[in-house]
């Protein structure tokens, strides 16, 4: 044991310095050259930060595209999911309530067209995206609220569909914050 203690101690010190000190410093230094310089990429409106490109935020007003439900209320300083199992009765009531709320605000939508992502909470509570279907079924509501032509809104959504990686891998999606920022600019 004694024979092992000194090398162990010195190796520990060396690797704490290398792995805990130098390595993150190196990565931090390199990240100064990426968009957002390693602090996270932000989106601006009129010179003010209104959000992080990768992080979802709460949208509940009828004039905006809604984000997905969040178990943590889109608290970007405390992420998390609902951790509800698929058969829990309280959870299923919550989903039913989400469906009902959506139907009330979107009377023209048929229930069987609502995609599951719009009424279930994401894993992080900060999901920046919704499915394409999830955006399309909100078009009528927003067009009415903003007094815009539904065709114009449809074109807007389609222009904001993010294709799978290289067109071949992974799901299609729509970034809600980016879409809503453009929506606000449309009005002017």
């Amino acid at each position: 044991m004694k024979k092992h203690l000194l090398p162990s101690l010195m190796l520990t010190i060396v690797f704490v310095v290398i792995c805990g000190g130098l390595y993150p410093l190196l990565i931090s230094g390199i990240s100064k050259f990426v968009p957002g310089s390693g602090k996270g990429e932000t989106l601006m409106v009129n010179g003010k930060v209104v959000g992080y490109a990768n992080e979802g935020q709460k949208f509940t007003l009828d004039k905006y595209f809604w984000s997905r439900p969040s178990a943590v209320g889109y608290n970007a300083a405390g992420s998390g999911g609902s951790n509800k199992g698929p058969s829990d009765s309280a959870y299923l009531k919550q989903v039913q309530a989400n469906i009902d709320t959506f139907m009330v605000h979107n009377p023209t939508v048929k229930k069987e067209d609502i995609p599951a992502d719009l009424v279930t909470a994401s894993g992080s509570g900060l999901d920046p995206d919704i499915s394409v279907q999830g955006a399309l079924i909100q078009v009528n509501r927003i067009a009415k609220e903003r007094k815009l032509a539904p065709e114009q809104m449809l074109a807007l959504v389609n222009a904001h569909v993010e294709k799978p990686l290289l067109g071949m891998f992974g799901p299609e999606k729509v970034n809600v914050l980016k879409l809503n920022i453009v929506l606000d600019e449309l009005k002017k």
């Binding site: 997905r68 999911g81 609902s82 951790n83 509800k84 698929p86 959870y91 299923l92 989903v95 039913q96 469906i99 229930k111 069987e112 067209d113 609502i114 995609p115 599951a116 992502d117 009424v119 279930t120 909470a121 994401s122 894993g123 992080s124 999901d127 920046p128 995206d129 919704i130 499915s131 279907q133 999830g134 992974g170 799901p171 999606k173």
Partner: peptide, 18 residues
């Protein structure tokens, strides 16, 4: 409950991964 399951089971999942 009668809604679409085209995007699969999404509770606890992120749209960008599916």
């Amino acid at each position: 409950m009668g809604i679409s399951q085209a995007t699969g089971a999404m509770e606890g999942k992120e749209v960008r991964f599916g």
